[in-house]
């Protein structure tokens, strides 16, 4: 019996190995201005995000 369905997400632990290129959008440049949201920022390092999925 399936009790748990795991949704495919980026593995953050793996992203520690190859992330941090700094090319993604600075979050305060978008709509918020008065609050900080980063989860919606797209990764612009195609190689790293593919490797760490």
């Amino acid at each position: 019996m399936e009790h748990i369905k795991t949704i495919k997400t980026r593995n953050l632990c793996d992203s520690a190995k190859n992330g941090g290129c700094g090319e993604c959008q600075t979050s305060c440049q978008s709509a918020c201005k008065t609050s900080c949201g980063i989860a919606n920022q797209k990764c612009e390092n195609t190689k790293a995000s593919k490797n760490s999925k």
Binding site: I7, K8, T9, R10, L12, C13, S15, A16, N18, G19, G20, G22, C24, T26, S27, C28, S30, A31, C32, C36, G37, I38, A39, N40, Q41, K42, C43, N45, A48, S49, S52, K53
Partner: peptide
């Protein structure tokens, strides 16, 4: 909606999440 645009499979790496805005 801005705060609900969460990209689960291609979202920010842990460096971005830790550094926040910048």
């Amino acid at each position: 909606f801005y705060h609900y645009m969460i990209d689960l499979s291609g979202g920010p790496c842990i460096y971005k999440r830790i550094s926040g805005c910048g």
